[in-house]
Simulated assay, not measured.
Amino acid sequence: MAYISRGCTRGVLLHSDQGSYFTSKNYRKRLKRYHMKHSMSRKGNCWDNAPIEHFFRSLKTEWMPKNGWSTPREAKHAVNNYICKYYNHHGPHQHNQGMAPDQKEMNL
Rank of each mutant, 00 (worst) to 15 (best):
M1K: 14
Y3K: 09
I4G: 00
I4A: 06
R6D: 08
R6E: 11
G7D: 03
T9D: 12
T9W: 05
T9N: 07
R10L: 10
R10A: 14
G11R: 00
G11C: 01
G11H: 01
V12C: 02
L13H: 06
L14H: 12
L14T: 11
L14I: 14
H15W: 09
D17Q: 07
S20V: 13
Y21V: 12
F22P: 00
T23W: 00
S24L: 00
N26P: 10
R28L: 04
L31M: 08
K32D: 11
K32C: 09
R33V: 02
Y34A: 05
H35R: 15
K37Y: 04
K37M: 07
S39C: 05
S39L: 03
M40F: 05
S41L: 00
S41M: 00
S41N: 04
R42P: 13
R42C: 07
R42D: 08
K43M: 02
K43G: 05
K43Y: 04
G44D: 06
C46Y: 03
N49L: 03
P51Q: 14
E53S: 04
E53C: 05
E53D: 07
E53P: 06
E53T: 04
F55D: 05
F55N: 03
F55V: 04
L59W: 06
K60E: 09
T61P: 07
T61E: 15
E62Y: 00
E62I: 02
E62H: 02
W63K: 07
M64G: 06
G68Q: 02
S70I: 12
S70T: 14
P72Y: 07
P72C: 06
R73W: 11
R73K: 14
R73T: 15
K76M: 13
H77N: 08
H77Q: 12
A78V: 06
A78H: 02
N80R: 11
N80T: 08
N81F: 02
N81Q: 11
I83G: 02
C84G: 03
K85C: 05
Y86C: 05
Y86D: 08
Y87M: 04
Y87Q: 09
N88M: 04
H90I: 12
G91I: 01
P92W: 11
H93G: 13
H93Y: 11
Q97D: 15
Q97M: 15
G98R: 10
G98A: 13
M99D: 12
A100T: 12
A100Y: 10
P101N: 08
D102W: 06
D102F: 07
Q103C: 14
Q103P: 13
E105S: 14
M106K: 15
L108A: 15
